[in-house]
Design a protein around this nucleic acid. Structure first.
Lengths: 330, 330
DNA sequence: TTGTAAGCGTTATCAA
DNA sequence: TTGATAACGCTTACAA
């Protein structure tokens, strides 16, 4: 593979000049620039990234560690991050931690070892992984979930409020025994959605009952089982569901139990997905601004890379309830 | 940040010994290994990836360049690749080319510059990007789409046959004016699905008509418009749809036109998705073995990294038609 | 078994 | 403006 020396030799200049010409750094004689460019093209020269990064002590790469690559919410964040990063010449590598602290640790190690310029992550409850980055002063932005007691730029959705509003909506529609299917304890979004649900019930003077709450991983299978149990034992007349994958499980369980969404059991789920309008009745959802979360997170990260001394900020975006048939009795 | 020299100093050995101890290479006195490990831990030592990769001339990283990070088909492939790669100590970075040759080029450049050990890609029609890798002898596996006339390991689905079978299924169910909504010309999977559709019609002695075919990008919006046009002008009684995102668009168009899937317009779409069973009637799909494609591709890539001289192979996996209500008139 | 030292390909400093 | 040269941190002959 051609190196900078090969280019230098072919162009009849020193490697230093090649480097300067290729990076447009200090001023180089236009004629030499032309010769260097020609030689580089002729040789199909691609700079050696590891060598460059070793010397520069930094790579123009951002790592994005997400919780689940199969969750459209996180892939939408990924797009937002990419779109911003690319405009300023950074590449983004996507790492799928899979809601698993070990995998997350693995990717944090990779990010550190490869000396990426910065990291955006939706952290697992195991804060030690993020601490690894924090302790090294690696620019870091937390997205979707906060890092408790850590001074880190953070981009969140006011998910507790959103859950409260969703629950209030169900109450307003006349549902009275509202259940909640949420994610694992310790995952902040799961906890907040449950809290918001309880906020609404309490404010309305409705007794909350642990029998109407189920926690499971953020996936279809667990939610299906949870919903089946709720339906069998606790006769809810509505369910608040913490994400779209879980919603598929809950809707499947309703179908199996012969209970029609909306009319018989009201349903509101987090995350607006393309199929929400295709089912009958259409699914009422809490739409989170995922793409925007990604762009904001990327901008914060770039700002921090430029100035690691700046104060940490928390940006909280609002979610939006989209009312559809699954939360209407009529 | 601690370097190997710091560890060496603290352990009272040379950097060479630290390197050997940490990599478990040649035999090192167990007591020294212990001292090195202790020092490394104490200092929070993480090897400098660029330096290591520069020296080794290779990184234990695979690049996976996919066409659309928001398409569940590709994210399932990603999981398959990751699961295999991780078992042998490779990390996977996911790159989203977004069906865009320029972005693909960008990520190919990154992969080359970072000297990744190998690349798996679902190539855009612009073969020049893959040629960049081929010309440098970078281990490469094409997945989902072949690279015409290139001797490259390839993992495909027999999508033409699958499309034919899906169309034959529709014919068998009594549909006669079957339309096809497929992806952009030049994208092999899009072309093959159209070819399979035509194969079935011809074999059945049904005249094929360009008026029943629409091509658009592999996304919901284009497919929605395409389906609306077909419904308005060509009165199809069934549609073969080339992926799940497009299916959401087609189903939306059917809803707008007040045409019920199955009874009025038969629908078969590529890719089994969680919501396929939730809609009414449930969606008949062609299930592709995406996860397995990922595992096979990763295994092929690892084999090629180990021995770049081996002959290129093509693995073709079968898809499976899952019959549901959207292709039944009853 | 351990240490010394060269070198991977860049970039940046310093002279010229 | 250009070139020689010294790092960057690691691995690996080669020597001891």
């Amino acid at each position: 593979m051609a190196t900078i020396s090969d280019v230098a030799a072919m162009a009849g200049v020193s490697t230093a000049t090649v480097s300067r010409a290729l990076n447009g750094k200090s001023t180089v004689d236009p004629e030499l620039v032309a010769r260097v460019l020609a030689a580089a093209k002729e040789l199909g020269y691609q700079p050696n990234g590891p060598a460059r990064n070793l010397r520069r002590q930094e790579a123009a790469v951002l790592a994005l560690i997400i919780s689940d690559v199969e969750n459209p919410f996180f892939t939408a964040i990924a797009r937002g991050v990419e779109d911003v990063a690319h405009t300023v010449g950074y590449s983004v590598v996507l790492c799928n931690a899979d809601e698993n602290a070990d995998k997350e640790r693995r990717y944090v190690d990779v990010a550190i070892q490869e000396r990426v310029a910065g990291v955006i992550m939706s952290p697992t409850p195991d804060v030690r992984n993020a601490d690894l980055l924090i302790n090294r002063n690696t620019p870091l932005v937390a997205v979707d979930r906060p890092l408790p007691d850590r001074l880190v730029d953070t981009v969140l959705v006011d998910t507790r409020l959103a859950a409260r509003q969703a629950t209030e909506h169900l109450l307003a529609k006349g549902y009275t025994r509202i259940g909640c299917v949420t994610g694992p304890s310790g995952v902040r979004t799961a906890d907040d959605r449950l809290s918001g649900y309880r906020d609404a019930l309490r404010a309305a003077g409705v007794r909350t009952s642990p029998r109407l709450v189920r926690r499971t991983e953020f996936r279809a299978a667990g939610a299906r089982k949870a919903a089946a149990e709720l339906l069998a034992h606790s006769s809810p007349d509505a369910l608040l569901v913490a994400n779209s994958a879980m919603a598929t499980g809950v809707l499947a369980a309703l179908g199996e139990a012969g209970r029609r969404p909306g009319r018989e059991v009201g349903v509101v789920a987090f995350d607006d997905v393309a199929w929400a309008e295709l089912i009958d009745p259409p699914l009422t959802v809490v739409a989170q601004p995922a793409y925007e979360m990604g762009t904001v997170a990327a901008q914060l990260l770039l700002a921090r890379i430029a100035d690691n001394g700046r104060a940490a900020t928390t940006t909280t975006l609002a979610a939006r309830l989209i009312e559809r048939g699954s939360s209407h009795r009529g």
